[in-house]
Amino acid sequence: MLAVRDLTKRFRGPNNEVRALDGVSFDLAPGDFLAIQGTSGSGKTTLLLACGALQRPDGGSISIEGQNPYALSAEERTRFRARHIGFVFQQFHLIPYLTVLENVLSPLLALDDAGAKARALELLQRFRIQDRADHLPAHLSTGERQRTALARALLHRPKLILADEPTGNLDAQNADAVIDGLRELAAQGTAILMVTHDNRLAARAGRTLAMERGKWKVAG
């Protein structure tokens, strides 16, 4: 599903060059739920964005469903992302002037999908936010916002979910609900790559890898 080989990425800092990724390799099969841990600046978010075809690495290769997204043109890569990858972020990134249902349906702006509306209602029900369908994000609790973001990520039934600290702003109960949802998706065959520094939640993933200065610290 996802194959990462010798990935490198450098950023120019104010005083020196920072190696955000330094020869990272791993594989993710359908149904895998991999949690990546590490301190701030360890390179885990850079790895996630690179895997999501959002940040071109300086070296190494990434293959998603046998295709290197960075070999595609910018517009092809955008379509590829819409078709294959779902994103969940710590900050939710909901569109503030759209209702919960409209936010969940927002991927339709990128890709037409005839059954999307029914699937969106199904997802709202699955994440227990169906009674909030007509509410704006500003009127939701943080847990409801994250569940909305998760429902949005799943609309097109992506084969790969990339989650960046998806529980970072949630209380324990809501965090558990989100992890339960991700585990359920993994059980259905979706590959999940989650970045977190919460050991308790990482332990609930299928396997865990830790990063330090752009490299694996412990193999899981």
Binding site: L54, L94, I95
Partner: peptide, 16 residues
């Protein structure tokens, strides 16, 4: 910025 970022992330083309 955030809205544009997420729209791009979910696959909305730059032309749109």
């Amino acid at each position: 910025r955030e809205e544009i970022g997420i729209l791009r992330a979910i696959g909305v083309r730059s032309g749109k």
